[in-house]
Computed example of a mutant assay.
Amino acid sequence: MPLFLEKLLSVCSGDISSCKGHKLPSGFHNYTLIDDLITLLNNRNGFYGFESALHVFPFETVGEEIGVVAWNDNSLWIDCYDDLARNAIFFAEDVFGGQFCIKQDGIYTFDPETGSFDYLAPDINEWCKKILEDYQVLTGYPLANAWQKKHGPIPVGYRLVPKVPFVAGGEYEPDNLYLEKSTVAMKARANIALQIRDIPDGSNIQLKLIDGD
C-alpha cells in the first residue's frame, strides 16, 4: 500500500461498506488515475476522517451512504452545474461538501459555490499526504469539531452548509453553518455557481438563493 495512503487510513474510520473488489463502469476508466481510486477503495471501501470532516465515498450505495458510482451519475447533481462540473470523477468531500476529484492530470478540489476546479496533487497517494499535512484547511476539521460539540454528530448523507454562502462573504463560523443533505446542498449551490460564472472578480453580486430539492 502506498505510504501516505496507509498513514491516512490509520487515522480514519473503518470501511463504510464491507464489500471489496468492485469494478467501476467503463466510463471511469477513461481517467489515468482510476487505478489509484480502485486501490484506495479496495483498501478501505469508503470512510470518514477527522470527526467526519473528510468523507470518502464507498464503491456502492449502502443505505443512506451514496456510493461513488451513484454520486457521479450526472443526473444526481452534476447536470445542475451545466458544464462546470464535467470531466471529473468525484470521490470524496470536505465537511462543507467541497469535492475532491480525479481529472486527467491529477487530483483537484471542486468548489460547489463557484464551480471552479483547483489542482491539488498528482495522484491519490500525494493527495493523502496533502490531507495529512493540512487537514484543518482541506477538510474543515476545526469547524466540524466546533459545530458537533454544540449540535452532535453529522448524520450520514449530510454536510455542513453555510447559511450565508462563503462566496458572498459568509463567515467560517459554526453559527453560519446548518445541516443539509449532500445532494440538496450541491443542487442549491449549483444555482449560485451559475449566477456568478461570468461576473468579474471583485464585482458586486446579488444572489438569488433557491431550495436544492
Rank of each mutant, 00 (worst) to 15 (best):
H55T: 12
N125W: 12
P112V: 01
L84E: 00
F47N: 00
R86Y: 13
F100I: 07
N72Q: 03
W77H: 14
I89Q: 09
N72F: 05
W77P: 12
A53S: 14
D105C: 01
W77K: 10
G46H: 07
A70G: 06
P122N: 12
N74M: 11
D111A: 06
F100C: 05
L120E: 05
F90A: 03
Q99S: 06
I102G: 00
F50Y: 14
H55R: 00
G98P: 12
Y119E: 05
D73R: 08
L54M: 01
D105L: 08
E65W: 13
T114M: 12
G67Q: 00
R44H: 06
D94N: 14
N125T: 01
E65F: 11
T61G: 09
D94R: 03
L76C: 02
V62M: 07
Y81N: 06
I131Y: 09
P122D: 13
I89L: 07
F110Q: 03
F91I: 11
P58Y: 11
N45P: 08
E126T: 15
F117R: 09
N125M: 04
E51G: 14
G115A: 00
I66W: 08
F91P: 07
L132R: 08
I102N: 00
E64V: 11
F50V: 10
Q99A: 02
N87W: 13
I78M: 10
Q99L: 14
L54Y: 02
Q99W: 01
F91M: 08
D94Q: 04
D123S: 01
I78R: 11
E64T: 10
T114R: 14
E93P: 04
T114D: 01
T109A: 10
L132S: 03
V56P: 09
G97H: 05
Y119T: 11
W71M: 13
G46P: 03
F91Y: 09
F110K: 09
G67M: 07
D73V: 07
I131K: 08
E113T: 06
C101I: 05
K103L: 04
K103P: 02
E93Y: 04
A121S: 05
L84A: 07
F90W: 00
L54T: 08
S116T: 15
E64F: 05
L84V: 08
Y119F: 15
A70T: 05
A70D: 15
I131M: 12
E65Y: 03
Q99T: 04
G49T: 09
P122C: 11
G115L: 10
I66N: 01
R86E: 15
S116Y: 01
S116N: 13
K130D: 03
P58H: 13
T114E: 12
D94I: 02
G98T: 15
D111Q: 05
N74L: 13
D79H: 13
C101K: 08
N74H: 15
A85D: 04
E64G: 06
E65S: 12
V62N: 06
F57I: 10
N87H: 15
L84I: 11
I131R: 02
F117D: 00
Y108S: 01
L120N: 02
S52K: 15
L120F: 06
E65L: 08
I89A: 09
T114Y: 13
G106D: 00
G115V: 05
F59V: 00
A53H: 03
L84N: 04
F47E: 06
K103H: 04
K103V: 04
